[in-house]
Design a protein around this nucleic acid. Structure first.
Lengths: 207, 207, 207, 207
DNA sequence: TATGAATGAGGGTTCATTCAT
DNA sequence: AATGAATGAACCCTCATTCAT
């Protein structure tokens, strides 16, 4: 969890290079984690993907755990902020739901492996990081539940709807494309989000 | 994949003990696999849960892989048959969908850990077994897709509905309760199934 | 090394059965030892060859080591006595050498696997048995060396001949057919012995 | 069979160290294999001989099998080439035979344990390597058989001589000193080779 | 910054052996 | 006389991690 001992000081030239390389390593790690799972991902497989040697990874990260934690944090980055903005913004339930889905799935256009890693490797985090990540996750879920609750309150959403169940179902519908597609082109994101929204809002029944 | 050489002969009355013990081991293994994942699950943790020594497991199973494969097979057992029966039976789309969900989730009342293990550890199967399990899984998915297609054909389901997307979404909605609950009491199964069916059929919108 | 605890008393009916079964087990063990070597020979492979279960072997033998030791003893049985008889008997060097080879290779017509096991698994004996077997082996070698020495003494064998080297060479020439053939038919034994004798006596040079 | 992934790049000057260490490990392994046999040779015994930890062996070799295969290859190295040169060179049968024996036994002055390991542990090779080694071995044997056949053809060798039997007997005569001596001093090699040649050519009979 | 080398801990698996029945 | 069940020790191998250079 702590930074490697000899990491360059902030603000120097070196620091920029260091940070860039760190990010590259995170990407490689996320790719391997997403493909074979955290436990099967060997540090040398990660290093090989970057053409470097295993031991050099420890110049940038103090442990494999740390890399996983950081990937999960990156994957979660901004979710709370964006979701808060959506909730505080204009629009009825349906509009906010569509915005939510776009925001939620946006990462699939940028860092799909980070998202998959978050979904599938979260449980492999060491206790401390797992609790931390869990806290953020639950806060985010709470915001989505609030969206549902607002929908119920203003009559757009059926009163029979259990907000917790609805929120977790919404997430579940997002996992599928995350895991079974290699990534999402930027121009397809909105269509994907709306497809999910349509199902979630209206179900499959013909009207 | 084959039973250990020194297992008792078939049909003897000792064979029943052997089979019972095997099943107990499978249950213990499924519990550990579901809890910490296949890779983190040590064979001695499985043995400890049964008060036996690790090496004794190999009297019943020839490898950890074999146990996983068997758990996945058990989890899949009967799905094709039951789904075929539903499709060939009476009822409109909605009725068949509700039956499908009950059949699909029924395992949660009996062997929830087997189901979770199947969902989360499938990828850890050795190549041969993974292909075999994949074949069964795809056949089952195809049946559910056929259900969707029939719904579209007779006008109960919206024509805009992509059957593949719909089928995989239905499964996704089932994963949630599987993973986040410890099991489902037999008398709650129908309610759970119907809750999912309601969402899937009509969405959350108030009408 | 000690007999199993509950072995039947000598002279009883049971004792005969017991001894017969013991011999069968020794044969099976010798076959497996000869085929894959002592270390790779599992007790269950031996049992399987007899249609019995591994644990039952321990009713007849107290350990795998004991079976090996006994096989080696059986393989050596009578060598000293027969060699002594040959040395004490009539005939010149060449005649005695041919008798020696026939006596030495005779086991190939009866228990080739015992001989091969002796040759290839001797080193796997536990210390005590190895010394015992080594003692007998050396005594036998000494007799063969005496044969060579007598040949030298009476002028039939070249005076330049090192008796130790000659004796061990004679044995070496016997190992080949032992290891590379499946066994020797009784009527071929004399021919095989004479072929080796011819080479040993006269070499390959044309005269 | 392939070198470990993280071995140093070819041509670097670190690679030389790596190769040297690899060779040291092979020597240690050969010594242990020759002493107690492949199956009884534990990797930690090999490591202990070098003052390193067992796991470090795997930085140089990917498996115990690989080390054995390499030892056998080393033991066979050059045999075909040298034997071909002898056959294609000048000299009558007797001269070529003596050259053959010197070439064959030369390894006893350099790496006796490799030779003994080859002789006694060949059967423990995994299937692929065993076939490969078997192929080389048989090719070499065929060359020695050709030598015998040439001797028969030009009248130096008795027409009654079976070339296959003669060739395998020659090898058998070489096994003895290999196995029962700790090695051969360089200046004794020729004498040893000639002793064997004398026996093989003329037998023990006084003329 | 990066590498080669080394290590300790742990895991899955095999197997001879024991013992109650 | 034979079997099912269990066990402990040993073994090969993997891997994250460390450290000197």
């Amino acid at each position: 969890m702590t930074a490697p001992v000899e990491a360059p000081g902030k603000g120097t030239f070196k620091a920029a290079n260091h940070a860039r390389r760190r990010a590259e390593i995170l990407d490689a790690a996320a790719a391997v984690f997403a493909e074979v799972g955290y436990m099967r991902a060997s540090t040398s497989a990660i290093a090989a993907r970057l053409g470097m040697r295993q031991s050099n990874l420890y110049y940038y990260f103090s442990s494999k755990d740390e890399a996983l934690a950081e990937i999960c944090i990156v994957a979660l980055d901004g979710y709370i902020r964006r979701m808060t903005a959506i909730l505080d913004g204009e629009g009825n339930f349906e509009e906010k739901l569509r915005l939510t889905l776009r925001a939620h799935l946006h990462i699939l256009t940028q860092r799909p492996e980070h998202y998959v890693t978050f979904l599938t490797c979260r449980h492999d985090l060491p206790d401390g990081a797992r609790r931390e990540v869990g806290k953020i996750t639950r806060a985010y879920e709470a915001l989505v539940e609030r969206l549902m609750a607002e929908g119920v309150a203003n009559g757009e959403v059926s009163a029979r709807c259990d907000v917790k169940f609805a929120a977790s179902s919404l997430f579940a519908l997002c996992h599928n494309p995350a895991i079974y597609r290699d990534g999402v082109a930027e121009d397809n994101l909105d269509r994907l989000a709306d497809t999910i929204a349509d199902l979630f809002l209206n179900g499959v029944v013909q009207r």
